[in-house]
């Protein structure tokens, strides 16, 4: 009885020594919430309020306008090509980097991350300098009547470039943490390479893969700077949703611009919700992975 009481007192002293007074705690929570309210909640709220400022009818007109529909379609096409390609690359790159040991691994990982450190405008420009009329292949493409810049292929290429690292950078640390024991066991038991990948690796990485794909897709659908440089802004032909929003906004069709923007804001909210769910699953899976690692004899 006395021991219990002493323990409780000791614990409360330890707690008090390693946390802040109540007024500081609530003060900090207040500062953090106010900061996020101003910088995150306010912009999100204004998108929906401004989208509905002229009523539901205008809202519906703006998003069912043929130009808006063409922009939505092009956005889906660009993301529909870029995301699967970068997904396959992400799986291949993380298989090579996480499951094998070779010199230059760090350099390769840094090179994969490179597109993240390039300004979106420059990302678009590099494709203009290659495929544009003034670029390396410009004259040849012009002679053969192939259009890449100011056309859909340029938009797809720019989208692939800016979303290049997403899947790989999610999968590499996850696969490194999971190690190679399970695959080795499967191979020892007589499974083939593809079989091992499909039945052992893929189930292990599926949540991480989904996580990378979600982020990749959000950026692919929302990319503005890079696509803006290569698009040429031809209405109904080479305008993606973000570019369509820009044109509407600059022509003072504010309600219409925000109506289309609200669709992308909804996509962002869905992305965040999925991301939170998947993050939780990845954490669980990693905890499971660690459990088997602990039982491994240390070498």
């Amino acid at each position: 009885m006395k021991n219990q009481q002493q323990g409780r007192i000791a614990r409360s002293i330890a707690e008090r020594a390693t946390t802040e007074p109540r007024w500081i705690r609530w003060g900090l929570i207040g500062v953090a919430l106010a900061f996020l309210a101003v910088f995150v909640v306010l912009p999100l709220a204004v998108v929906f309020v401004a989208a509905l400022q002229k009523g539901l009818y205008t809202y519906w007109e703006s998003i069912s306008d043929p130009m808006a529909l063409a922009a939505i379609k092009l956005t889906f096409i660009a993301a529909g090509i870029a995301v699967p390609l970068n997904m396959v690359f992400g799986v291949a790159a993380s298989w090579a980097i996480a499951k094998f040991d070779f010199p230059g691994k760090q350099v390769l990982t840094t090179l994969i991350d490179l597109p993240f450190s390039v300004s979106p405008v420059v990302s678009g420009l590099i494709f203009v300098l290659i495929f544009g009329l003034q670029g390396w292949f410009g004259p040849w493409l012009n002679d053969h009547d192939i259009k890449i810049i100011f056309a859909v292929p340029g938009i797809v290429l720019a989208t692939i470039f800016v979303t290049f690292p997403f899947v790989a950078r999610e999968l590499i640390p996850l696969m490194q943490a999971q190690g190679t024991e399970e695959e080795e066991a499967a191979l020892t038991l007589g499974a083939g390479g593809w079989q091992t990948f499909r039945r052992v690796t893929l189930p292990n990485i599926k949540w991480g893969l989904l996580y990378g794909v979600i982020l990749c897709n959000a950026r692919a659908m929302g990319e503005f700077g890079a696509v803006s440089v290569v698009s040429g802004h031809i209405r109904g032909l080479t305008n993606t949703m973000p570019l369509h929003i820009e044109i509407l906004y600059n022509e003072y069709h504010s309600a219409a611009a925000f109506a289309v923007a609200s669709l992308l804001a909804l996509l962002a909210l869905v992305t965040l919700a999925l991301k939170s769910i998947v993050e939780w699953r990845v954490k669980q899976q990693l905890r499971g992975g660690r459990h088997t690692l602990v039982e491994e004899p240390t070498t």
Binding site: L36, F39, V40, V41, P43, L44, V47, P120, L215, A218, M221, G222, E223, F224, G225, M241, P242, L243, I245, E246, A261, L264, A265, L267, A268, L269, T271, L272, A273, K275, S276
Partner: peptide
């Protein structure tokens, strides 16, 4: 979860 909104929200929006 909301902290990541600037990553998810397209820059033009």
């Amino acid at each position: 979860a909301l902290v990541d909104l600037p990553f998810a929200l397209p820059t033009a929006v």
